[in-house]
Amino acid sequence: MDEIDQKLISELRHNARASLSDLALALGVSRTTVRGRIERLRRSGDIVGFTVVLKGDAAFDPVRGLMMLGIEGRGTDRVIRQLNGLSAVRATHTTNGRWDVIVEIGTTTLEDLDAVLAQIRRFDGIANSETSLLLSTRKSAR
């Protein structure tokens, strides 16, 4: 993958619906070159697909936080099932090190976040927790 391919992928990550003409202009190459490179990247498996992000998926949660959890014994799977059942939970991640699970939480108010944190702390098997508010996000997969 050369520099043009990398720039092409960067442009597609920014806007996968960009026209071939717009991509060609941004990269300083022809439309035919852009089309050929996209097809080559798809055939080689470097681009495995394109996706749709729905309006609801891109909704911004005004209050976001990361909750790190220490779990007693072998209750991780049960706790993750409970976490994934909560509407405010955006993602759960298992980790190594001090914390067993990191939970991404999004709510509309601090009071709502506090209620979710309290609910999670009451789950059986939660030994300890620490929460950090997310102030800003520089890059997101969405």
Score class of each variant (00 low, 15 high):
residue 111 E to W: 04
residue 105 I to A: 07
residue 35 R to P: 15
residue 68 M to N: 06
residue 133 L to D: 01
residue 61 D to M: 13
residue 81 R to Y: 07
residue 70 G to Q: 02
residue 87 S to I: 10
residue 118 A to K: 03
residue 137 T to Y: 14
residue 80 I to N: 05
residue 3 E to H: 11
residue 26 A to P: 05
residue 54 L to Q: 05
residue 5 D to I: 11
residue 47 I to K: 08
residue 138 R to L: 15
residue 12 L to F: 04
residue 139 K to S: 15
residue 21 S to D: 02
residue 59 A to R: 14
residue 8 L to C: 05
residue 15 N to K: 05
residue 89 V to Y: 07
residue 119 Q to L: 00
residue 77 D to N: 12
residue 28 G to F: 06
residue 65 G to P: 04
residue 55 K to L: 10
residue 38 I to F: 02
residue 117 L to A: 10
residue 129 S to F: 11
residue 82 Q to I: 12
residue 49 G to D: 06
residue 130 E to M: 11
residue 19 S to R: 10
residue 61 D to C: 14
residue 63 V to E: 03
residue 70 G to N: 03
residue 49 G to M: 01
residue 72 E to I: 03
residue 126 I to L: 09
residue 56 G to H: 09
residue 112 D to G: 08
residue 44 S to I: 03
residue 28 G to T: 06
residue 12 L to R: 01
residue 53 V to I: 13
residue 89 V to W: 05
residue 135 L to F: 15
residue 113 L to A: 09
residue 73 G to M: 05
residue 121 R to H: 08
residue 117 L to M: 11
residue 86 L to N: 00
residue 53 V to Q: 10
residue 114 D to S: 15
residue 44 S to T: 04
residue 90 R to V: 00
residue 47 I to H: 04
residue 43 R to Q: 08
residue 122 R to F: 15
residue 133 L to R: 02
residue 140 S to M: 04
residue 76 T to K: 07
residue 13 R to K: 11
residue 88 A to F: 13
residue 114 D to M: 07
residue 91 A to D: 10
